[in-house]
């Protein structure tokens, strides 16, 4: 039995402790906003917050994070995610959309740490998030726009 806090609720998982957090979230908890793209920490589609920091859920066995607090895109709150999602919609960033939960999570994590990121900060924070539709031009602009909104 593994206990986790997920989006503010306590959950108990009766699963193989090797099970990646990604599949526990999706198959058990039906939190489908977190996506599968590679399974080997090469694409970022599965990004969640683990105790407040971005983490690739596809390579995180649930047995290794017993007692941790997980936040998925469904449970994100606060000015950063609101600014990011508003900028995403205003610029129509998504194309197919499959990578975008992960992009939004990583962008939010960046803005929580760095309120006014440079292009280089964006490269560093977002380089692990692949977008096969190559929506990168708009991702970059949307992060700058969100930072501006947060500045007020």
């Amino acid at each position: 039995m593994i206990k986790l806090g997920v989006n503010g609720k306590e959950v108990t998982l009766d699963l193989d402790p090797e099970t990646p957090l990604l599949w526990a979230l999706r198959d058990e908890l039906r939190l489908t906003g977190t996506k599968f793209g590679c399974g080997v920490a090469q694409c970022g589609a599965c990004t969640v917050m683990l105790d407040g920091m971005p983490r690739r859920s596809c390579v995180t066995p649930i047995g290794s994070i017993d007692g941790s607090e997980v936040t998925t895109i469904e449970g994100m709150e606060g000015p950063e995610i609101e600014a990011v999602q508003a900028a995403w919609a205003a610029l129509d960033v998504p194309q197919c959309g499959w990578c975008q939960s992960g992009q939004v999570m990583s962008a939010t994590a960046l803005l929580q740490l760095v309120s006014n990121p440079t292009d280089e900060d964006i490269d560093n924070a977002m380089n692990g998030n692949v977008c096969r539709c190559a929506t990168y031009v708009r991702i970059r602009q949307a992060i700058h726009d969100a930072a501006k909104t947060l500045e007020g």
């Binding site: 489908t32 995403w88 919609a89 998504p94 939004v104």
Partner: peptide, 27 residues
């Protein structure tokens, strides 16, 4: 004008095939 699917794709609610779960389903 804004695309119709941007908001749902930015907040994780857009429904794709892998997101389909039905009673008794096997993977």
């Amino acid at each position: 004008r804004p695309k119709l699917d941007s908001v749902a794709k930015a907040n994780g609610t857009a429904g794709f095939t892998m997101d389909v779960y039905r009673e008794g389903m096997l993977t």
